[in-house]
């Protein structure tokens, strides 16, 4: 690109305007990058907490279901599982963070109530119920964690892309434009000097 610049004054003016515009865009992009990063940091802190919580909840749920299996037997647990009529579902909507489309996940029917489990008071066991409860809990936490993880991933993608554009502007585009500007100025000065010299020769002749 630097090779086919016409060293004329009008080109210089155009170039100056372009440099100004590009530098403005660069500043805006930097702000976007920093803003996104800021959002990301705060979400990350929440996410770390959520993940710890998730692991703890899973440990508890696993312990409970192992207990239920041991006391009631695997068959009874599986039978209760099949009898459960609750149906957890998630609804994914879009949200906008600083121009990035991120998911917003809402769960429904995640925790089954006692009556939807399909077993009566007598037929069920407290161990299986507790296991059911903690898994219901776990699923809620999973939905929250999944939403946060998906949001973080989207933010990360956008941060990476913006970072690349900022760097491209800072290290390639703007330096090339400025180099072209320098080149034109140099040539214009040279031409002026040549003119002056030629005029002098003329005058002296």
């Amino acid at each position: 690109m630097a090779l086919d610049i016409k060293p004329t004054r009008s080109e210089l003016i155009k170039l100056k305007a372009r440099i100004k515009q590009t530098k403005n865009g660069y500043k805006l992009l930097k702000m976007k990058r920093d803003g996104l990063f800021h959002e990301f940091r705060s979400l990350l802190a929440e996410m770390i907490e959520a993940k710890k919580d998730l692991t703890a909840t899973y440990r508890l749920a696993k312990t409970r279901i192992d207990l239920a299996n041991a006391i009631e037997g695997g068959l009874a647990v599986r039978a209760t599982a099949i009898a459960n009529s609750a149906h957890p579902e998630v609804e994914v909507q879009r949200r906008n963070i600083m121009g990035v489309v991120v998911p917003n996940i809402q769960g429904s029917g995640l925790k089954s109530s006692f009556d939807s489990r399909g077993v009566g008071f007598i037929g069920s066991s407290p161990y299986i119920d507790e296991a059911s409860d903690s898994f219901g809990n776990l699923i809620e936490k999973i939905v929250t964690a999944a939403e946060m993880e998906a949001t973080l991933k989207r933010l990360l993608e956008e941060i990476e892309a913006t970072k690349r554009r900022v760097n491209a502007l800072e290290f390639k585009v703007i330096p090339e434009l400025e180099e072209a500007q320098g080149f034109i100025k140099l040539r214009l000065e040279e031409m002026e000097r040549e003119e002056t010299f030629r005029l002098k020769r003329f005058k002296n002749k």
Binding site: A81, V92, F135, G136
Partner: peptide, 21 residues
Amino acid sequence: MEIAVLGSPAFTLGFQLAGIS
């Protein structure tokens, strides 16, 4: 949208208990 669980039967049983199909 659905929630899916993948793993060993022992792993998935708990989720079945909570209603995931």
